[in-house]
């Protein structure tokens, strides 16, 4: 049991963070707080993806150490797969981070529109003001 917990400890962290973010998104009444929750939520998912990319056993950054094997047929075959971390999740997460900041920008723009009209950021007060 303990080994089970320890061998996946990054996954627990991401689940905790995701729950925190999710709770903030649906339970908090302040709009900026919701955005903060959204940010935490998305970051947690990114953490999950990055965790899946990791390889133990001496794997290094996904950048070829000796890029001068150019043109030598034998040199490239020496690139060991286990030597480098899996680059694909990193790529996906770069895209996800971009999406994150884009969503943040649009959400903040909407928040400013709301504040301009109602003068408050609390959802309950806004609903009261609308009636």
């Amino acid at each position: 049991m303990l080994e089970f917990i320890v061998s996946k400890y990054n996954f627990w962290i991401y689940i905790i963070l995701m729950m925190i973010g999710f709770y903030a998104m649906i339970a908090k009444r302040n709009l900026v707080k919701k955005i903060i929750g959204m940010n935490i939520f998305q970051t947690a998912i990114i953490l999950f993806f990055i965790s899946t990319a990791y390889k133990t056993g001496g794997a290094t950054l996904p950048i070829l150490l000796d890029p001068h094997g150019h043109g030598h047929g034998a040199a490239e075959s020496a690139v060991a797969v286990s030597q480098y971390i899996n680059p694909l999740p990193h790529v996906l997460m770069l895209t996800a981070i971009v999406v994150m900041v884009a969503t943040l920008g649009v959400a903040l723009a909407i928040v400013i529109m709301i504040y301009r009209k109602y003068g408050t950021l609390n959802e309950d007060e806004i609903i009261k003001a609308m009636k």
Partner: peptide, 15 residues
């Protein structure tokens, strides 16, 4: 009232 409706859509759509 559209901004608030849109904000809710942002939150749920992001989820």
């Amino acid at each position: 009232g559209a901004p608030l409706a849109s904000f809710r859509y942002v939150v749920l759509g992001t989820v």
